[in-house]
Design a protein around this nucleic acid. Structure first.
Lengths: 224, 224
DNA sequence: TAGATTGTTAATCGATTAACAATC
DNA sequence: TAGATTGTTAATCGATTAACAATC
């Protein structure tokens, strides 16, 4: 039984990355007044494949009912619990350029259980400026924020200062970092870094686009 | 020999996703005046593991020299070629909210071979407004942009309008889409969609943070 | 030649998928 | 009971890794 707590640890990374997607779909079903869904319903809503949905959910425990499906609200709660979303997480954003300001203004965080508790920048000229209702603060305020529960740091600085900022986050005890700067960060193994890189995403699309263009040329040649 | 053109197709997805990272490292080496690097040098710069670096590069061909390493500029060119970055790609951004504006202002695109050729929004009140030097245009202008070479569409709208915008992009012939809206897009199989979701990233970090917090509690209990 | 480093092999690991017994 | 759908198994697939022969 994978509901056994002793085997409940060790949810595969690929599964963890899909859990937020299922959660979003479940919230949407709940908003539509749908109380129960099958793995096939979730598959259609997330584009994931019903066998994979069932396998993923089985890592959390046995929360479905054979012949019936999954209770929408109960499953949503179980996924939230597994992801650690049953309490709020405090987030700080470092780097108040265009991207940092956009992130600070983004409403999606609050509704998902993340609270922005600090906006920071190394540029003293920005200190005190109000962005999305919060004052921009100096890096020296980091330690105090950690005392207030800061758990996750978001780096939205240029590449050049990202490692320095990362070191400061790590030194005050932040162990989860979301990095938007286009650079690889060196951190101790205890720190988890996830990276979002806009140029990398476009480059991967370019690779596929080029392959499609290549095929189109081949077809054009064949048909001429 | 994997340099054989007949086997050069079919670079694994995981490898494609790492090629931009190698390319960035190589540009950095080149800027520092370094002409030749080993797979170990690239491993350190990218955090990837030298065996994986060599395996990844072997899918492109045999561009290294045994006992010596890789010529920085030549390897950078080969990766650029494989990714389809030897010519410019035209990009349109749809959705001129905070995020869309930040993306429009981002300098990183231009230096990587992507040119923003259009900013669009469904809101008529924004039309004509100038963002990052370009006027915001109505969705009806999309078809014309495709005629001018538009290849990649970036969706930076709220979730509610993302599918509609996506359908419009697909209908005019855009087959590569980068989606920042927190929703799953339905597209024909010929369209490649990549998704960047800020909330999902934070939720994955929350999962790991929670596991660490759980361990810390256990340790605290043991040591008390 | 001696030392260094690639490119490739083969073993291992982790993720996906189809099928179906269990069971509501 | 008959129909539906889960949870799990086992096969398959793809990615990672260590080791080393090839070779500069």
């Amino acid at each position: 039984m994978s509901a056994d707590p002793s085997t409940r640890r060790g949810i595969p990374d690929a599964t963890v990355a899909r859990l937020p997607e299922y959660l979003r779909a479940l919230h949407s079903f709940s908003d539509d007044g749908i109380a129960s869904v099958s793995s096939e319903d979730l598959a259609v809503a997330t584009g994931v494949g019903s066998a994979k949905v069932r396998k993923d959910l089985s890592y959390l425990g046995s929360y479905g009912i054979r012949g019936v499906g999954y209770d929408v609200d109960h499953l949503a709660y179980q996924i939230s619990f597994a992801l650690g979303l049953t309490h709020e997480w405090a987030v700080a954003i470092v780097g108040m350029g265009n991207l940092g300001r956009a992130l600070a203004a983004y409403r999606g965080f609050a509704t998902k259980g993340f609270r922005i508790v600090g906006l920071l920048d190394q540029d003293t000229r920005l200190h005190g400026q109000v962005v999305a209702g919060l004052p921009v603060r100096p890096m020296a305020d980091l330690a105090g924020l950690v005392g207030e529960g800061l758990a996750i740091g978001v780096i939205a600085t240029p590449a050049e200062s990202a490692q320095d900022v990362c070191d400061q986050l790590v030194s005050v005890g932040v162990r989860s970092i979301l990095n938007f700067a286009p650079t690889v960060l060196a951190t101790p193994p205890s720190v988890v870094v996830r990276k979002v890189d806009l140029s990398t995403e476009l480059q991967i699309l370019a690779f596929h686009e080029q392959r499609k263009a290549g095929r189109a040329v081949t077809l054009a040649e064949v048909s001429s």
